[in-house]
Simulated scan of single mutants.
Amino acid sequence: MTEDPVIRLRGATKRFRSSSGGVHTAVHDLTMTVGRGEFVAVVGPTGCGKSTTLSLVSGLEAPSEGEAVVNGRPVAGIPDGVGYMFQADAVLPWRTVLDNVATGPRYRGASRKEARERAGDWVRRVGLGGFEDYYPHQLSGGMRKRVAMAQTLVNEPSILLMDEPFSALDVQTRALMQDELLRLWSGTGAAVIFVTHDLEEAICLADRVLVMTAGPATVKAAFPVPLDRPRDVERIRLTTEFLDVYREIWESLREEVEETRQRGTHRVA
């Protein structure tokens, strides 16, 4: 990592107008940094504002107060070099695997031949060689996630934003995709913010885990993950080092989960 962070949120607050005419504060006084080549996972209670954090970095939303800075410049619109992988697949059902992956380079001005060559390379990298002419409905959930990953990485982003991309997968497929992500990200130098509800997933993937408070969210605590790379996510889950980190972070996260549960109980009552 370099000394100057690639991503910086400074005292960022985001408010939305609610359907009832009131104001909902999603995140409040949010300050965080991500360095070049750093993998940061963000965990917190359901609905606390984790996804809003990604929206501020990506330029999809502007902060109501404070600022979002990417590569030393205040965010105004979508910054160059940002790749965004959503929870729902963004594959186009009427296009083949190859043409789905080639869409990004085509939008960025590549010729059809160049775009398809780059797409073919990434289709093979994510383990879908031989499936170039298949359509999304012919693929399993895990295979569609591989297409989505290739769609994102084919543009060689310097910043990778991931919003619970593997949450809909079964446990075995999720572990495979976590290993695949680490393999493809390694050596790219891309800064990653990975939002997840799964603390195990966060620890397996990240260099640092940020715990968010119950909404409106701010950063409660940051925990380094002292696990060597490269990582095999199934093996490291069984190590003493992993369990020690898990217990430490869970103690912080548990308080916020309980706070959110209590608020929900009071509203129902």
Rank of each mutant, 00 (worst) to 15 (best):
W250P: 14
A88D: 08
T2V: 11
V82I: 10
S158N: 04
V192M: 07
A168I: 00
S58V: 03
R267F: 09
V57C: 04
G109F: 05
M1W: 07
L205R: 01
L184D: 06
V233T: 12
V171T: 15
G47T: 03
G129C: 11
V225R: 03
A68L: 04
F242D: 02
T53C: 09
D80T: 07
T213I: 14
V211P: 01
V268H: 15
D80A: 14
D179P: 11
V257L: 04
P105R: 03
I249L: 09
G21H: 07
R183E: 06
V147Q: 00
T13V: 15
I203S: 04
V43Y: 09
K50P: 07
E114N: 13
R106F: 10
M212R: 06
R144K: 02
R108E: 10
G215E: 01
T196K: 04
V225W: 01
E258W: 07
M1P: 03
Y84V: 11
D170V: 00
R237W: 04
L210T: 08
L160A: 04
V225Y: 02
M162S: 08
G264F: 07
T53P: 02
A269Y: 10
R267V: 15
V91T: 12
G44C: 10
G264K: 05
F194H: 07
V97S: 00
R73A: 06
R17H: 10
H197G: 13
A102N: 10
M32W: 09
F166W: 03
D228P: 15
S58D: 04
V154E: 00
I7C: 04
R229I: 10
N71V: 15
L181W: 02
V171P: 14
E156N: 09
T240P: 08
D244Q: 15
E251H: 12
G72W: 06
S140M: 00
Y246D: 05
L128E: 00
D244N: 12
G11H: 11
L128P: 01
V6P: 00
E114C: 14
S20K: 12
E67A: 11
F223I: 13
R15K: 13
P79S: 02
K14Q: 12
S252E: 14
R118T: 06
R17Y: 04
C204R: 00
V209I: 15
D29N: 10
E180H: 03
L182F: 09
V43W: 11
A175W: 07
V154P: 00
V123Y: 02
G59K: 01
T33D: 10
R267I: 09
R106S: 07
L30G: 01
L205V: 05
A88T: 13
D89R: 01
W122P: 05
V171F: 14
L9Y: 01
L205C: 07
